[in-house]
Amino acid sequence: MINRVLLLAAIVGIIVFGVLPVGAEDEVKRAFTDHTEEFHKVWVHLLWDIGIIGGIFLILSIYFMFAYRRKRDDQIGNGPKFTTMGMILGWALIPSFIFMADDFYLSAQGWKLWIDQRTVPENAMEVEVTGQMWGWEFEYENGAISDNDEGLVVPEGRPVVLRMKSDDVVHSFFIPRYRIKEDLMPGRVTYLWFYPKDKGEHVFTCTEFCGTNHSEMWGKVKVVSQEEFDEWSEKNKG
């Protein structure tokens, strides 16, 4: 019975660590194609990275778990003895350097993407976002005002920077489609920017717990054409 359990665990493990990165890559390609592309490159790299590390450890441990089962009752293990300093340090330092190299590789990748994510393009349209329990208010450069029922209406093809503050508690503005979020809080001003390349409607939500109706603090980012946007913002002025 125990053997069967182990076999099942092995199959699950191989599927998870072997197939997941491949499957996820397809998913990523299908769903996202605009300025979040760099995000997905890093994400897929990372899935491969952790898939390989996890796979090695998992396959090794599952192999050991099968191969070294106890044959006789009085049998004892015959594992390596770490008697010399060289062996102890070797087995500590070599893996450490491998892990560290991988850490720095991932840091470099993450840093590069981070700079993209935090450098607001000069021509970005600015929208002032105010969070309050439990809703959002958006104020545009020309004085147009919107809320979460109306949605965050933005023209396609122009980066949008959100200047965010909160009236009461900590909130967080999250647009899953654009892979971005940042907290809002009283007393500080925070930013995030995104690039609505194509028309469409995407969900935004609050992701920092803010009380009873936390889960009602959501709405849609509506990406429309420039003409529709101009018409809309004229109508919602003041």
């Binding site: 000069e122 200047r163 503050k165 930013y191």
Partner: peptide, 11 residues
């Protein structure tokens, strides 16, 4: 102050 903080003047 509420309105001005974080504002970017026309460059």
């Amino acid at each position: 102050e509420e309105k001005a903080l974080g504002y970017r003047f026309n460059r």
